Computed example of a mutant assay.
Amino acid sequence: MTQRSRNTTALALGLGVAAAASLLTGCGGEQQPKQALKPLVIKEQTSTVTQGTGGFVVTWAGVISNPNRWYFGENIAATIVGRDAAGKEVVRMEQPLDAVPPAGSLKFTGQAMASSKPVDVKVAYKPAQWRRAGRIPSAFVPFPISASNTEKLGNGSYLVTGAVGNPYQKAATSLVVTALLRDRAGRLVGGASTYVDDVRAGSPRRFVLTVDSLNGTGPVAHADITARTWGSSGRPYEELAMSGALPPSTDRPKTPPFARDRGYQAMPVDRRP
């Protein structure tokens, strides 16, 4: 084979490969555009207005969820605006919210004072900024709540107590505990939040919070209590997940062993031919 024929053959092969690649691209082999991230979903929200010593107390509570499985929703803010009967704005507050974990939800509460009584309270939300998580969604184990109790105090107030644990090997420097109160129908009627610091694995920390301003909402049947990392960024939660979760059970039995074996019943032997 001459040099010219070799060059001709190489050129033909190159053109053939290019044509095949072009054909594959035309048949749907091109890169698909990235799927747009879905916005946060407002699942529930409620607000109450009660007379206080220095004016009117406006409280609110809500639940927002993150439909994106691989992304943190960060730098979120809620704007609360209350207007009186004449339509005049009597209270306005912007509340920074904590990050929403991938495929998770955020339960939050807030409170503000108004000089005159608002008859219309609206909550608007700033869109989230999205950041891809460094771990799979199942790595973000929830913080366990134990020994919870809800007690009615009077004047529309409820005392909520309990303990929050840490399922990770690394200590949680600061957690937000939120209690949402619901009536017998499961309807959200109010809530409150508190902070717990330095929660270490195997050492649950006690929390105490009071939910006020629930006059006229009916009896409370259930307290929905959750804990989360504090801050507009998901980094603290991600750092805990990177440290690794503890095994489901690491504690030794605390009860004495049985004095004797309880015995067992052996399965009959199958003697079929």
Rank of each mutant, 00 (worst) to 15 (best):
Q95D: 01
D224G: 02
S138T: 01
A179W: 08
P39F: 06
V123A: 04
K170I: 06
S174R: 13
P236S: 09
T161E: 10
T79A: 14
T255W: 08
L153C: 11
T9Y: 13
S249Q: 04
G154H: 09
I80D: 10
Q51Y: 08
W70P: 03
D261P: 14
Y264H: 06
S146D: 10
Y158D: 09
P273R: 15
S174F: 02
Q95W: 06
D212R: 07
A86I: 03
S193K: 05
T109S: 02
E89K: 00
E74Y: 09
L181I: 08
K122V: 05
T8V: 13
S193M: 08
V57Q: 14
P142E: 01
D183N: 15
D212P: 03
L240T: 10
A12S: 05
E30I: 05
P247Y: 08
V91M: 08
P204L: 13
R228N: 12
E94W: 09
V141M: 00
S116M: 02
Q129V: 14
P268E: 05
V41S: 07
F72Y: 05
P144E: 13
P101I: 14
H222G: 05
G52T: 07
V57N: 15
G190Q: 01
G218E: 03
L188F: 03
T194V: 04
G263W: 10
G134W: 00
K126V: 10
S157N: 00
D261N: 15
Y168L: 08
P167W: 15
C27R: 14
P102C: 07
G154F: 07
Y264C: 02
R131S: 15
G55H: 08
R206T: 14
R4D: 08
R182Q: 07
G52D: 05
L106Q: 06
I42T: 13
L13K: 03
R272H: 01
V211Y: 02
M1E: 11
G14Y: 03
P257Y: 07
D198V: 00
A78R: 13
D198H: 13
F56D: 12
P39Q: 05
A201G: 07
P253K: 12
M113E: 14
A77H: 13
G154T: 10
M93N: 04
T50G: 01
S146N: 02
A192M: 02
L175H: 01
R4Q: 06
D84M: 07
W230Y: 15
L13N: 06
Q32L: 15
Q95P: 03
K122E: 03
L23A: 14
A147H: 14
Q35D: 11
P257V: 06
I80A: 13
K43W: 09
V176H: 04
T50W: 01
F72N: 09
V141D: 02
S22E: 04
D183S: 13
S138W: 00
P268N: 06
F72D: 00
K152W: 07
S146G: 05
V177T: 12
N155Q: 12
D84H: 03
D98N: 08
G54V: 10
V119I: 14
A192E: 03
R262F: 15
A266K: 12
W60G: 12
L97H: 00
A18N: 14
N149F: 13
D212L: 08
P96Y: 03
A139N: 06
V119G: 15
V121L: 09
L214A: 06
R187I: 09
